[in-house]
Amino acid sequence: MYNYIEYGSSEISNDNIDDQEKYEQFMARIEVGEKIEPDDWMPEDYRQGLIKLISMHGISEIMGALPEKEWTPKAPTMKRKLGIMAKVQDEMGHGQLLLRVAEDLMQPYGKDRGDIMEDLLSGDLKFHNVFHMPTKTWADAGMVGWLVDGAAIISQTNMLDASYGPYQRALQRICQEEVFHAQHGEAIIMALAEGTDYQREILQESLNRWWPSLLMFFGPASADTTGSSKQNIMIKYKIRKSSNEELRQAFLDKYLPRVFSLGLTVPDETVHYDEAQEQWIYQQPDWNEFKQIIKNKGPRSKERLRLREIAYENNRWVRQALAKDQVMT
């Protein structure tokens, strides 16, 4: 469900375009809305940008299962147990779908899913900032579905017409399922908002805690904030349409009225809609903290990676058994 244009290494340049003609044809195709398929010619920075975007998206789906997993066995009713099980299973399914797309793109480099997993564990591959955060109460299970998935829908709708066919098609399905997830989250939130004092208390506490992460969700407004950003190249190649800030404004537009109508507040006294500028004014989250978080120095980064590491190491014998005739690490 999750991707922003990540803070990361500098843009790859296309200095050595040995075939200017192919490049021009490629650009002409995406200009008229044609989709690029895995075996088509594509510029190197397009391929590498996609690999980074899609493998991060895929791995974030998988890492994203972990915070919600903390509440899955504890879900408070049979119906909630069924709902959250179905939801987290969908997320794993998205992860699988996306890693398949990334694997196709990585093929020319002789890399596959094993490399993605190794890169995650070594810290070379980032996962989304929201999944480095702790969960404390059942309200967090609702918050992840309602606002985190709500943010994801906004950021993915932005790419529903992406120029790369396999990703664009995967996103159609993912977005449809995310709408159910947001409804699942909203249902949990509504029950809490209409519930006992204790329920309202854990709901507000959860929102206060998640607010900075939700603002960070869409990434920095520009490269000035964190050092680098790939927004422009992704827009040029028609992977996405809107900028990080435009997406964040769309999120605030959609959700702040809902937050207020439930009688909830956000931990920002300055937040308001400025009619003249036609945008929400809000207090910036701590972007230095964001940089730390995505370097795997967030509150739960180590623990979540540790779970994946244990799963990976502890099940090595199973993978070896399944691939008896293949060379296995």
Binding site: I62, L66, K69, T72, M92, L99, A311, N314, N315, V318
Partner: peptide, 10 residues
């Protein structure tokens, strides 16, 4: 449900 996210492969 305790196994979620920890199975041998995706």
């Amino acid at each position: 449900s305790e196994w979620l996210g920890l199975a041998p492969h995706i």
